[in-house]
Amino acid sequence: AVEILEALAHADEAASGSDASPRGRLRISAPMSFGLTDLAERLPRFQQRYPELILDVEFNDRQADLLEDGFDVALRGSGPLPDSSLKARRLRPLHRLLCASAEYLARHGTPETPEALTSHNCLVFTMAAQPNSWVFRRGEETVEIVVAGNQRINNSIALCTSAIAGCGIVLLPDFVAGGPLAEGRLQRILPDWHVDDQHIHAVYPAHRERAPKVRALIDFLVAEYAEAQALTSKA
């Protein structure tokens, strides 16, 4: 019933045709850390391009129910779609990087193998599917390490702050770690090993696929991340 009501509410957008100018309220859900460090920088450009849109954005690590909560688009990390009535568009890869501050490494040493992490204070992201299990790969080698530490936090930005302060070793998404790494406040650890990449997707109800405001946001983000990837490749 909720889906039917939502479909009726947006039927006028679909009927308006592909040339309709995006307008009205656009409800967006995104994870807190990704929203604050990445999406928030892009939304002003999107708003300037479509001034008739009203952006209603919620940053929350709770996975929203798009139909029940009334969201037009949700940005999510990799994972199966919980509802067959949803569609997804891949936007960008999500790399996770092992990091620590120079201060921490000077006091405790730099681990040279994944196994060495068991003797270090590892800061744990509790929203991960298996928070204490870190899986590293190098060529054909795969090593799974059970880590432990004195901080368990459900937000990557807070974990990054603790790592910069010298509290321990942390596995961070690139959109959080990128700035501190470039500025020298964090250092990469075990660069020859990698953690499996994930992807950020734009997820939306299938019946809103033709809504101009939904198409506008997704097309904008696809172009933004394609340009960012091209610049990274040239660098």
Rank of each mutant, 00 (worst) to 15 (best):
I4N: 09
H10W: 10
A14G: 10
S16I: 10
G17A: 06
D19S: 14
P31G: 10
L39N: 03
R42K: 10
P44D: 07
P51C: 04
E58A: 05
Q63L: 06
D65I: 05
V73Y: 08
V73P: 03
P80F: 06
R96D: 04
Y104F: 13
L105F: 03
P111H: 01
P114L: 08
T118R: 10
N121T: 14
V124S: 03
V124L: 08
F125G: 07
T126V: 13
P131Q: 02
W134A: 02
F136C: 02
R137D: 01
R137I: 03
G139E: 05
E140P: 00
E140L: 09
V143F: 00
E144T: 14
N150P: 00
Q151P: 00
R152L: 09
S162K: 14
G168M: 00
L171I: 13
F175D: 15
V176W: 02
G178H: 14
G178S: 15
G179A: 14
R185H: 11
V195S: 00
H201I: 00
P212R: 00
K213S: 01
L217A: 09
L217M: 12
L217P: 06
F220P: 05
E224K: 01
E224W: 05
Y225C: 08
L231W: 11
S233W: 06
S233G: 00
A235V: 10
